[in-house]
Design a protein around this nucleic acid. Structure first.
Lengths: 207, 207
DNA sequence: GTCTATAACGGGATAGAC
DNA sequence: GTCTATCCCGTTATAGAC
């Protein structure tokens, strides 16, 4: 049956994605993929030329899913600050880290233009997408006009990726959550709707 | 001679540190360490029980150095914003990533309490150290009183770690630099000495 | 399509000679 | 202290039978 073939291929891809996420490219062996998927050796090599092709399918799929999930949150109505907050605070398996960002640490992935491409594209897309959200907010007067949408977008993506690192180092989601609180707190101080009651504002009003 | 023994051990540690940085724990073999260091097999196993002990020495050394380098920047005089900026913008080999943060992605390191400890401690120390710098700034009235030192400190560390990820994904230091510009821009808007000329301030002054 | 056999090679170490 | 030999196992396939 045709569906059996699809199932086999899908199981291989799913297992490879998991292993790539957990152990990276170097730490993932074809044998481990076979065992986790329950697909035999001959079958695996029938459907995929080898480890590289398997990884390519897995990485491509993971990158696609990531973009879909991000776009779902980023295209909802709301102010830019709300949209950005909704995206950053979405459900995440923090201690597992980011399945795309993880690949960044794999020299064998990054040195291969084909394997690398989906990783590069994912972050480029996300950075630009967030910058557009901020740019729109800026246009609607939601932020202090001095805010740099591109730099701020990159800072937000970086906090996310770095938050995973801190969480894994501490074996706790706490630093991840605090890091998000941190940037979002800083961002809130630049929104027009929630002016900070700081020394700057105080001095200005009493001038 | 005694110095020969020290040299051999030092060369092994140095090579292991490089390989751990480039390829991670899983991707680093004792054989590769021997080749890079020019130390023979028997010699290596005479000085270190195995891969794990070698890695422990390397990781410990890297963590120590990292703290020393951070403290050098963080203990210099200046406002909190200046100090934080000095630390974030110090010379870095951005595309190589962070040698400590990298280990966070290695399941064999993170699942071993002994190997993991230096990683955990380094980030805990850095986070607390930066929080203290911000706290001091706050006490001196350099920031809007609503700023959360701990959350902001974690956000700063996260931007650094995430900046490396973005840089490696893009194979360019540009996103790293932009991410730093981004957070520092946000932070600057909360300093008392450089009030933002945004809508919030404008509305307050014309009220 | 899937299975088993085989193979060249590297990983990670131990043993004992020198 | 350092060297070479040896070992067992996993990696990453390929070959050919079924």
């Amino acid at each position: 049956m045709y569906s059996n073939r699809v199932d086999t291929v899908e199981r291989l891809i799913a297992s490879t994605r998991e292993l790539l996420w957990e152990r990276g490219y170097t730490g993932t062996s074809p044998r481990a993929v076979q065992q986790r998927s329950g697909v035999g050796q001959g079958s695996m090599y029938h459907h995929f030329a080898g480890k590289r092709e398997l990884a390519l399918a897995a990485i491509t799929r993971t990158a696609e899913e990531m973009r879909v999930m991000a776009e779902e949150r980023l295209s909802l109505p709301g102010t830019a600050a709300e949209t950005v907050t909704r995206y950053l605070r979405r459900e995440r398996e923090v201690l597992r880290g980011c399945p795309v960002g993880r690949l960044t640490q794999d020299p064998d992935v990054m040195s291969d233009p084909v394997l690398r491409a989906p990783v590069e594209e994912t972050f480029r897309w996300l950075s630009e997408r967030l910058a557009r959200v901020l740019q729109e907010g800026l246009r609607r007067g939601e932020f202090d006009a001095a805010l740099d949408p591109r730099a701020t977008a990159d800072a937000l993506v970086a906090v996310l990726q770095g938050g995973y690192v801190l969480a894994r180092a501490a074996d706790s989601t706490a630093p991840f959550d605090r890091a998000l609180d941190g940037v979002l707190g800083l961002l809130a101080a630049r929104t027009a709707t929630a002016p900070p009651a700081g020394p700057a504002a105080a001095r200005t009003s009493t001038a």
